[in-house]
Design a protein around this nucleic acid. Sequence first.
DNA 1: TTACCATATTGGCATATTGTAATATATCAA
DNA 2: TTGATATATTACAATATGCCAATATGGTAA
Lengths: 111, 111
Amino acid sequence: MIGDSDRLLEVFRLQADLCKSLADAKRLMIIHHLRDGPKSVGELAEAIGSKQSNTSQHLGVLRKAGVVCATRQGNIVRYSLVIPGIAMACDIVREAVGEILQRERSLSDIM
Amino acid sequence: MIGDSDRLLEVFRLQADLCKSLADAKRLMIIHHLRDGPKSVGELAEAIGSKQSNTSQHLGVLRKAGVVCATRQGNIVRYSLVIPGIAMACDIVREAVGEILQRERSLSDIM
DNA sequence: TTACCATATTGGCATATTGTAATATATCAA
DNA sequence: TTGATATATTACAATATGCCAATATGGTAA
């Protein structure tokens, strides 16, 4: 039988998988660019300054994680954000980055 | 000279580093347990079901990322959350996990 | 001092991730 | 059909990560 702790661990594992998909600078840039609306792979590749294949791979990671979804229009594939909450969480984390940087800066003032 | 895009990339890199520190089930469990207040390494090790050395390593990751901080009391080290916003971001992500699970479940209903 | 306890660090191994180049697939147009 | 364009996938090397066992460090107490 499956205990509560197993179920809890499973949730944390899923959450970790989602965080992993967000734990890359290029993927964060992709999410950032998708806030303005759907974008094609080529547009995103240029926006983040990566090769086409690499961009497609990163989009695959986000797609598998359920963060973005793809729709074909002719021979162009447009990606868009699935869960608005993710962008919100990214904002909070970005604010935290600012806090940590400030903390480190005031630490270096002391030392 | 350093352009705006370089600065932007740097911010995303820092954000990615922070996300990386959150992208592990055991570290998420640690953060979860620290919401109730500071805890020693031993307490956390038991809570997440890991060896002492492994727990210490994970705490080191969170410490370097600036998510938690440590204070000694005798020969016990207590860890606590530094940035409350992180826990908030984790909550949002956890809700997103729920959304994704629901989406997948309704997909499997169709197929 | 020695013994003990809690925590941190190191070395080794298995696994995962990333970027690039090459190739494969899909769609449209002629 | 062929060719061009857009995207996806694969194979490989380099790097990073997680875990464990063993050891090192910091602190307390006898």
